[in-house]
Amino acid sequence: MSYDFEEFEKHGYSELEVEALQEISNIGVGHSATALSQLLHRRVDMSVPLVELVKNENLAEKLVGASDSIVSSVLVQTADTNDKEKTLNFLIVFNEKSTRNIINILRNSNSPDDLRDLDEIALSIVKETGNILLLHTITAINTFTGSTWFPNVPELKIDMIGSITEEIISTNSIKNGMFLLVECDVFSDEENLKGVILIIPNDSGMKVILEKIYGEDLESYGE
């Protein structure tokens, strides 16, 4: 099992809810890995997505290690077409080395060592790569669950991972200050290309996912 059910149970999640999230992440991230492989013309593998409950405060360290590690990240917010209150946010994070490698591969040149020195084109490359991967994830989820999550424009942020996640956790924490993290490494053997995708539902967003999979009568499945 790639999740710790006892931890989920302690915080009020049913096994059904957790399995649904596991399925969604498997599919979403699988599509993403395929997209990256096509984009970069090389083999891309993914680890089995890990669905975890993480204390808000530990999110940054969970993702990258040190909360002051510099990363590039792309945020895509989506809202349910039928009810804009329901949101599902996606964040993809690349560490410093992976960021530079993505730029190098797509621009066929050597990018500066320092992420501070990236020019407009390099920034664009990172933003678009992140966006493409997230859009594939979103489409896969829509297809699988029959839902209609509509994406907003992507935002690129290059900064310390702790700083990036603080705002997200303060506006998206659900169920007792625990954060739902669907973490998956999408990586390539040839280069250091590691991306981590965070799928962040708010409470009502979660309900939509579950309703789509199990039907409106969620109560009858209750445990």
Binding site: Q77, N152, K157, D159, I164, E167, I168, T171
Partner: peptide, 18 residues
């Protein structure tokens, strides 16, 4: 109190959480 993302979903009106 920084605002990292422009479009962060802010549930309480106009001001960002920072």
């Amino acid at each position: 109190g920084a605002r990292m993302f422009e479009l962060s979903s802010q549930t309480e009106g106009i001001l960002d959480v920072g």
